[in-house]
């Protein structure tokens, strides 16, 4: 029983981890916390659906089309909103990212209807018993992709000169441009990468959850995971996601499934209060 709960919870945790990776990528790379990221994940899944159901593409072609479209979406978000707001107050940038998410969600509600859509699994969703525990290949794919994305991003950020350029551009954009980093190109690439990641997450997550315009609320869980992990640490985001998934599953099994979400939000507030640097992050102090 406990083993089965843990195995299923790791899938949920990987979902949170995947979304948390997007948050951390944008925050680490551009210094912006994107409150509309959850809605972007939903939008990515809908892009596939639009390609498949309305244009009549094959599923794999629709997926490829959605990925291309999300490159455009990321570029539009940066060029039309985040670049003009680069010197705006933090408040304005927070509200703008909330507004972006709301626009995407309400666009879907207006044009695709408020109801849920069925969404196909990429892999088989029939469970296979392994050592007395049921394992679902489609869920395994989510865990695999989350880890693959983590490793790829980790290598880019920590092992390549481009990663250093990204971090430099975020840390001190004037200084970075002085040493030859093209800051706005770096930010553009980060937004595109995050947008593609959102679509990948959306495609993997949509069959598990119900694909409706409100699926973006999953963003808060991704957020919680990112906060647990320290918001600046990529491995932290994955660890935070898995930890949140397990905590939720335990709370759902042993306390009450109705209280599950409340518990995870309470964890969010508690962690922000007690350990704002997250469970795995390190505290950065700004000296005045």
């Amino acid at each position: 029983m406990l083993a089965q709960v843990l195995v299923s919870s790791i899938t949920a945790g990987a979902v949170y981890a995947l979304i948390a990776l997007g948050f951390v990528l944008i925050h680490k790379g551009t210094g912006v916390v994107h409150f509309g990221y959850g809605d972007q994940v939903t939008f990515g899944a809908y892009l596939v659906l639009i390609g498949q159901a309305f244009i009549g593409l094959r599923f794999d072609v629709a997926v490829a089309g959605a990925l291309v479209a999300s490159v455009l979406l990321g570029a539009i978000i940066y060029l039309a909103f985040m670049w003009p707001l680069r010197n705006a107050s933090l408040l304005a940038r927070i509200i703008a990212s909330l507004a972006l998410g709301t626009v995407l969600r309400e666009f879907l509600r207006s044009y695709m209807g408020p109801n849920a859509w069925p969404f196909p699994f990429l892999l088989s969703s029939t469970s296979v018993p392994v050592g007395g525990v049921l394992i679902v290949p489609a869920n395994l794919a989510i865990v695999g992709v989350a880890i693959a994305v983590l490793v790829a991003l980790y290598l880019i950020f920590d092992r390549t000169i481009y990663g250093k350029a990204i971090l430099a551009a975020c840390e001190n954009s004037t200084g970075a441009s002085l040493v030859g980093v093209h800051v706005s190109t770096v930010f553009l690439l980060i937004w595109i990468l995050a947008s593609v990641l959102a679509t990948v997450a959306g495609i993997l997550v949509a069959p598990l959850l119900t694909l409706s315009p409100d699926m973006g609320l999953i963003g808060i869980k991704g957020f919680t995971a990112a906060v647990l992990g320290g918001f600046n640490s990529l491995p932290g985001a994955v660890a935070g996601g898995i930890a949140l998934g397990i905590l939720e599953a335990l709370a759902g099994t042993y306390v009450s499934s109705a209280l599950k979400d409340m518990i995870s939000y309470a964890i969010l507030i508690a962690v922000i209060l007690v350990r704002p640097q997250g469970l795995f992050g390190e505290l950065t102090l700004k000296k005045v």
């Binding site: 927070i94 409340m262 939000y265 704002p276």
Partner: peptide, 28 residues
């Protein structure tokens, strides 16, 4: 009193979580 320790996007997040908790409390 939360604002003693958090500001900016963490505050947005904490107040967001507060709203979510209150709404869930109404529902459950």
């Amino acid at each position: 009193q939360l604002t003693l320790r958090v500001s900016g996007h963490y505050l947005a997040l904490a107040t967001m979580a507060f709203t979510a908790i209150v709404q869930l409390a109404f529902i459950h």
